[in-house]
Every structure is written in structure tokens, then in C-alpha cells.
């Protein structure tokens, strides 16, 4: 039999190697795309022979991408904010009240997790055509609200579950009306959950492609849709350059949220028992 220490050391090494492999596997696509973005030639190839920043300039200057980016911001801002309010209200209702068909409603609210995005997109497309709505921002926003709502709902629901109700009772005992309790105690204490829920929704919405493909038009197309339309015609590294900017932007946003909004610090509320 192998001595215990050698056996353990072997296990440790196997574990480390496995971990490295998994991490490498996870970042592999992003790494390949990042390297490909700096190719000087107008082809998507790996690894590049000559290097350049020019596809970044091209991506930034391309009109469809610029419009797509700003359209995406509009859609994301509206849809994640609406989802935040709706999700917060549902989360409250589910956490605090008992009502008939509660589990059914809960199920419907999280159902977009099992319904494919293209189904949701197609549904909204048919619906919009039926009621004579043009494919404007309203339809895109509505579609995105449905898609991101489950995530927001879950995030807020978990925060609510972890919120010690005695804070709210203490505030009420000190003479605070329910509205005052909500604004001075509940919402501030839930803020980390609300911010992270909103952020998560925003990232999902901004990246959403499948459903957006159905409900956007040339005028309202979001960045992922614009990118899809681009690769149908061109195959140059500007796509890769855009991806790199995408990743950098999202990472910066999350880093900002974590450090400047103090997500970590606020989340670390000390329990007194």
C-alpha cells in the first residue's frame, strides 16, 4: 500500500492539475478571441502573424455597432429597472404573504428559466403583430423584462429571506409607519440584493441575443443583434475586438459595483447573535 502522505500528496497534485485544466478550459474561448482581436489581417485566424489595434478602431467607428450599443443601453436601463420593481414587489408578496395559488404564481414567475428565449421572442413578435404594435423599443423592453425577471426575483427573494425581521419590528415599535419602515430600514438593508439583482439583470439584458433577434428591427437592434448581422457579411477581427471591449466593460462594471458601491462591505452585515 502507498504510504498515506505520498497518497495524499498525489491527490493534492491531481486536484491542482484538474483545477488548472478547468480554469484554462473556462478562459480558453475568451483568450483565443482576445488574441485574435489583435490580428492585423482582415481574417479571423489564430494565432495572428502580425499585430494591430485597427479592428478596435473599426469596431468603435462602425455605425451599426454604435447604434446597437446605445439601443442596448436604452433597453437594458428600462428592462432591468422595471424588472427590479416588479421583481421586488413579487419577492415581497411571496416572502411576506400567504395567498391562493402562491406556488403556481411562483412557478410562472421563474418559468422563463425553462422556456427557451426564442419562444419568448417569437411570442412577443406574434403578439406585437397581432395588436398592431410596431417593433419599437416597448416590445423589446417588455420581452427583456420577462427574460430577466426570474433572476431579479430570486436575488431579492434571497436577500429578503436573510433579512432579520426584528429590524422592521423594532422600527415599527419606535413609531415608524409601514412606509417609513420600508424606506428607512427594509430598502437600505436590502440594497446589496437590489443592486446586485439590478446589475445581474442589466448584464443579462445587454447580452441577450436570441429573443432580441425576433423582436428588434433595424432601428432598435441591440449590440448582439448588430454583431450577428455583421458576421453574416464580414469575417474580420473587429468582432473579436468588440468582444474584448465587451468583456473589459462588463468586468469594469462589476469591479466598480463591488468596490465603490461597497457591495462586499454592505453584504457583510454583522449578525449580533
Amino acid at each position: 500500500m502507498i504510504p498515506r502522505s505520498t497518497y495524499q500528496r498525489m491527490l493534492g497534485w491531481i486536484g491542482r492539475i484538474t483545477l488548472i485544466c478547468i480554469v484554462a478550459f473556462l478562459i480558453l474561448p475568451a483568450a483565443v478571441v482576445t488574441i485574435a482581436a489583435f490580428n492585423d489581417k482582415p481574417i479571423l485566424s489564430f494565432p495572428p502573424q502580425t499585430w494591430s489595434w485597427r479592428w478596435f478602431a473599426r469596431a468603435l467607428a462602425y455605425d451599426d455597432f454604435r447604434h446597437g450599443f446605445f439601443n442596448g443601453l436604452i433597453v437594458t436601463a428600462w428592462s432591468s429597472t422595471i424588472a427590479l420593481f416588479v421583481g421586488a414587489m413579487f419577492a415581497f408578496a411571496i416572502d411576506r404573504y400567504r395567498f391562493p395559488f402562491k406556488s403556481l404564481i411562483e412557478g410562472i414567475l421563474v418559468s422563463p428559466l425553462v422556456i427557451p428565449h426564442f419562444t419568448v421572442g417569437l411570442g412577443f413578435l406574434i403578439l406585437a403583430a397581432q395588436v398592431g404594435l410596431s417593433r419599437g423599443f416597448a416590445v423589446v423592453v417588455a420581452c427583456h423584462v420577462v427574460l430577466v425577471l426570474p433572476f431579479v426575483l430570486r436575488s431579492i427573494y434571497v436577500s429578503l429571506k436573510n433579512l432579520d425581521q426584528s429590524y422592521e419590528l423594532a422600527a415599527a415599535s419606535l413609531g415608524a409607519t409601514p412606509f417609513r419602515v420600508l424606506t428607512t430600514i427594509t430598502v437600505p438593508l436590502l440594497l446589496p440584493g437590489l443592486v446586485s439583482g439590478w446589475l445581474f439583470a442589466a448584464i443579462l439584458s445587454f447580452n441577450e441575443f436570441t429573443a432580441s433577434l425576433f423582436v428588434t428591427s433595424q432601428r432598435t437592434q441591440t449590440l448582439p443583434v448588430a454583431m450577428y448581422n455583421y458576421v453574416r457579411e464580414f469575417a474580420d477581427p473587429s468582432m473579436a475586438a468588440l468582444s474584448v471591449m465587451y468583456i473589459a466593460g462588463t468586468a469594469a462594471l462589476i469591479a466598480f459595483a463591488t468596490s465603490f458601491l461597497g457591495l462586499g462591505k454592505v453584504l457583510n452585515i454583522e449578525q449580533t447573535h
Partner: peptide
Amino acid sequence: FQNYALFPH
């Protein structure tokens, strides 16, 4: 309250 319920913020 048993856990005092001081508002942590």
C-alpha cells in the same frame, strides 16, 4: 429584542 435588532446601517 433578544438580538437587540440595532439597525446595522
